[in-house]
Amino acid sequence: MIEVCRASLVYSDHGRDVFACREIDLEVRDGEFLGILGPSGSGKSSLLYLMSALKQPTSGEVRYQGRSLQAMSETERARLRLREFGFVFQYPYLLGYLSALENVVVACPGENRRDEAAGLLDSLGLGAKSHRLPHELSGGEKQRVCIARALLGGRACVFADEPTANLDHANGVAVVETLIDHRGKGGLVVVTHDPTMLERADRTVRIMDGRVVEAP
């Protein structure tokens, strides 16, 4: 589904080139749960951004369904993210002026998916809190709203960037379990520094200094 071919991501730090990713080859298959493991600063988040069309590689190529992401316009990449991908970020970003339910529906603008969103929140244990504003929810509850948002509409792939970093272990495990259980037939890419979160992953790759150092 997603192919990363000798992709590098270089950024400039005070005039010095720093490799966030260095000539990475990787594939995410249909419906696969791929774990990306690595310490802080290893480049795992940068790799996720490359795969999810949030960033463009400095060199190499990233393809989705055989089509190069670099060949797409910015608008096409945005549309791809909106329609095919779901995102769960480290920080549970929600729009403060919208209820939990409305925050979920935000993922599918112009479509009437309120019932589906309500069902997702219900299945995530937030049915009774769907009309609450973000400041009325706990950190774990916010992250579950983010998960519902990422899953709404049946995504081809959900990308989760350190989704458990701000949660205690039990809540972290619950978040990953929720993602696995509710992703349907879609793929799942989870970036984390905690190997226990990836126990149910189909595959896990390790990243160190921008390189894949261990892949099955």
């Binding site: 910015e74 608008t75 993210r81 995102f87 403060g96």
Partner: peptide, 15 residues
Amino acid sequence: LQEFGLLQALGYTRE
């Protein structure tokens, strides 16, 4: 900014 960043990351276009 957080709102704009989030929406753009989710796939809303800059335009």
